[in-house]
């Protein structure tokens, strides 16, 4: 039984949470009309990305009433959206929530905060410290926010924990316009999405935004890539788009039967190897 999901390739307003809540409501309505059981929004979809000092102004706790309209809208369609989370100990995090049946069921805090080139996440935010799976409409699921996905260990850890789906909300700036191909960033992302999907035998749902912030263009190109490496659906570049596609848990099972890479994965070796290098050697039990 496949599950229809939607990706809201939208253009959030920078620092304007109320306007973004209204914007979310309209995309949620469209996703519902399209028969989707889940709609996924890009990174920081409720606040905009290049917030700088605005980060503190728009931050709220994950259970803040400000996010009430999202929880409320999730009664008949699951919603994953991005916001700035202020933790109980007043740290700011780039967060992606997952709401279902009126409740917040999972929050992922971006672990890898790029602070180089055009990025300055680490100046304004604190890092998350875990990769935890949860159950979404597509089955066991992990969230990788933008730079998280670029670290091979992120989707690996999710796959090892049994995830069938990786949701990858992003705010990826488009760059690289050399002749003879696609946008440089697009090529890198597509390579990454397909590689992870096919070799970890799971669905990658890449959700990128569009629009501009301070002269930087977010390139869109959201896509759903299946565990056999095929592209289920792909949105256009640079334009707003509601992308709808099916996720088929049976395909995950078939691909894992055909190609049992995860079954044969030796996490114990990974663990010993890493622990040894970090000076925390583990005893062999075998």
């Amino acid at each position: 039984m496949s599950v229809r999901i939607a990706v809201a390739q939208c253009s959030p307003a920078l620092g304007a949470v109320r306007r973004n809540l209204e914007m979310h409501a309209s995309w949620i309505a469209r996703a519902r009309e399209a028969g989707a059981r889940l709609v996924v929004f890009p990174e920081l979809s409720l606040t905009g990305y290049y917030l700088k000092d605005l980060a503190a102004d728009v931050a709220c706790a994950a259970d803040d009433p400000q996010l009430g309209p999202i929880a409320e809208a999730s009664r008949d369609i699951d919603i994953s959206a991005g916001f700035v989370e202020r933790s109980a100990d007043a740290k700011l995090h780039i967060a992606q929530g997952y709401w279902s049946k009126g409740k917040l069921v999972h929050v992922h805090r971006k672990v890898y905060l790029p602070t180089y080139g055009i990025f300055d996440d680490g100046r304004y935010f604190g890092p998350g410290d875990r990769f935890e799976t949860f159950k979404s409409v597509g089955g066991s699921t992990g969230v990788a926010i933008c730079e998280d996905l670029w670290h091979v260990s992120t989707p690996y850890l999710y796959a090892a924990a049994g995830a069938a789906v990786v949701l990858a909300p992003s705010a990826s700036p488009g760059r690289g316009v050399a002749e003879g191909g696609d946008l440089g960033t697009a090529e890198s992302c597509r390579l990454m999405d397909r590689f992870y999907a096919q070799y970890l035998t799971l669905y990658v749902v890449y959700v990128n935004r569009v629009g501009h912030e301070d002269g930087i263009a977010f390139w869109g190109g959201s896509e759903i890539v299946a565990p056999d490496g095929t592209v289920v659906a792909r949105a256009p570049e640079f334009d707003e788009h509601l992308l709808v596609g099916e996720i088929d848990p049976d395909l995950v099972a078939r691909e894992r039967a055909r190609n049992p890479l995860l079954r044969d994965e030796r996490e114990d070796i990974v663990l010993r190897n890493v622990a040894g290098r970090l000076g925390l050697p583990l005893e062999r039990r075998d």
């Binding site: 307003a13 620092g15 306007r19 917030l51 000092d53 605005l54 301070d214």
Partner: peptide, 11 residues
Amino acid sequence: DFLYPRDWEAD
């Protein structure tokens, strides 16, 4: 250290 984005939008 007063660093707001130029595209700081009205809510």
